[in-house]
């Protein structure tokens, strides 16, 4: 077995961290290790947490982590922040709220930029989930920021997806429009001490009623005040219930298949794209094709055929 893989399976934090970096950088070294660890994954319950900026996701994650730690469970947290499309850099600041776990060996936090994937989840998230799972984490939480592709993507990875809303913000309406509302397994109305909570609850519940008419499980709507730790135990209960529901209804296998499907598609896409765009033999070709398209000597479809024709024979 790959050296780094065996150390990851032992839960060595330095190796876990290093393998994540290798995976993030699409390093060939990562592939061998990822192959080795797959057999040892699948036990962690993956929770996706999404919601608008300022909805208190990080604080909620802290509260959940504190509760899980009380139960003796090990927790991995993946905090994703947007990469600047201009510089390619990113400010990864979610950790600030989680520093209370900085010396707890049972908690592993990793911050990631969305990198190349415009607005979506960085493709390495699949790898990171597998790595943390293989390293023995019982719970893996994936936190994403903002409203967009990343939020819709999170459902593919997560066993349980939590959408966090706050009272009084017009953003919740925006989330509904963006289709994000449909992805939730649990809704949380956080900061429930704020005014307007009744209205937000009513809005969400009416949506749930419409969406769940023909389903055997009605999506629960919870309220929390994460800065006062209120509603957190209830939320953990709901997560457990959802997990049991998944297992009982065989939805669990369906969900996991979805995740592996997405992961497989992603790996193929990534390797194919790398093959085409990173290989120097195609570089000049692509440049000249773009020139031709610009000069109306060629249309983009024919140009694509020229490239793909060489691969898809």
């Amino acid at each position: 077995m790959n050296d780094i893989a065996s150390r990851v399976l032992k839960g060595d934090p330095q190796s876990v961290a290093r393998l994540i970096t290798l995976a993030e950088n699409n390093s060939p070294e990562a592939i061998g290790a990822m192959k080795d660890i797959h057999l040892h994954t699948g036990d962690a319950h993956v929770i996706g947490i999404t919601g608008v900026m300022g909805s208190g996701k990080s604080t909620l994650i802290c509260e959940l982590t504190r509760e899980y730690r009380k139960q003796g469970l090990e927790v991995g947290i993946i905090a994703i922040d947007p990469t600047s499309p201009f510089s390619g850099g990113a400010l990864l600041g979610d950790r600030i709220r989680m520093m209370e776990f900085a010396t707890d060996n049972g908690v592993f936090i990793r911050s990631m930029g969305t990198r190349g994937m415009l607005g979506g989840l960085t493709t390495a998230v699949y790898d990171v989930v597998e790595i943390l799972d293989a390293a023995g984490m019982d719970i893996v939480m994936v936190e994403t920021v903002g409203v967009g592709q990343a939020e819709v993507d999170v459902i593919k990875i997560a066993d349980t997806t939590i959408v966090v809303l706050v009272p009084g913000l017009g953003d919740s309406i925006q989330m509904i429009k963006a289709g994000v509302m449909e992805i939730a397994d649990i809704y949380v109305v956080n900061k429930a001490d704020r005014s307007g909570v009744e209205q937000t609850l009513a809005e969400v519940e009416s949506l749930v009623d419409i969406a769940c008419t023909n389903r055997d499980r009605k999506t629960p709507v919870l309220t929390t005040i994460s800065k006062e730790s209120k509603g957190v135990v209830e939320l953990i209960d709901e997560i457990d219930k959802h997990k049991k529901y998944l297992k009982k209804s065989k939805m669990f296998e369906v969900q996991r298949r979805k995740r592996y499907e997405a992961e497989l598609v992603e790996i193929i896409r990534k390797r194919l794209m790398n093959f085409i765009f990173d290989e120097s033999k195609f570089k000049g070709k692509i440049e000249s094709l773009i020139d031709q398209i610009s000069n109306k000597e060629l249309d983009p479809y024919t140009a694509a055929d020229e490239i793909l024709g060489k691969i898809l024979r």
Binding site: G89, A90, L92, R95, R97, M99
Partner: peptide, 14 residues
């Protein structure tokens, strides 16, 4: 911020 603008990924602890 400057390191971000220079294309690096910056984790800040607070």
């Amino acid at each position: 911020r400057a390191l971000r603008d220079a294309g690096m990924e910056v984790v800040y602890t607070g």
